[in-house]
């Protein structure tokens, strides 16, 4: 009889799902605030992301947690989705595909974690 190997996908699939949800709920407004509203001074004061304010935000437990979870989940969500898409366009689910997706997500996670740690509490 044929034997089946258990897939480890649930780990990555859960991160994909959580990240997709977070990106759907918070992604648009985050991009709008950090990338458009604050830089061009639209609706929000120009100093909304000044150094003292951002430092305070990133040192706050909730602020730091939010930043880390957002970066972590966005990275792993997209890694899993791109990994699937690479397979869709004919790039085998091999070491290269894993390095380009999950590998990048892991590096991003580590850089964000280290720097959020360095920023202090």
């Amino acid at each position: 009889m044929k034997t089946y190997k258990r897939s480890n996908a649930p780990i990555f699939w859960l991160l994909f799902g959580a990240g997709g949800m977070m990106a759907a709920l918070f992604g648009p407004i985050m991009v709008f605030i950090t990338g458009i509203a604050v830089p061009i001074g639209l609706l929000l004061p120009a100093d909304a992301m000044s150094y003292p304010k951002m430092l305070a935000f990133a040192q706050n437990f909730i602020g730091k947690g939010f930043l880390f979870v957002a970066i972590f989940l966005f990275a792993w969500h997209s890694a899993h989705r791109i990994f699937h898409s690479l397979h869709d366009v004919g790039i085998h689910r091999g070491v290269l595909a894993k390095a380009l997706t999950y590998g990048v997500a892991a590096v991003v996670t580590v850089i964000a974690a280290v720097n959020l740690w360095v920023i202090g509490f």
């Binding site: 990240g19 990106a23 992604g27 985050m30 991009v31 950090t34 990338g35 990133a58 930043l67 957002a70 970066i71 966005f74 990275a75 969500h77 997209s78 890694a79 989705r81 791109i82 990048v104 997500a105 991003v108 850089i111 964000a112 720097n115 959020l116 920023i119």
Partner: peptide, 14 residues
């Protein structure tokens, strides 16, 4: 790809 790009923008921010 764009969600990944934004994650990287945020990471550079940190």
């Amino acid at each position: 790809l764009f969600v990944a790009a934004y994650a990287i923008v945020l990471t550079i921010g940190t």
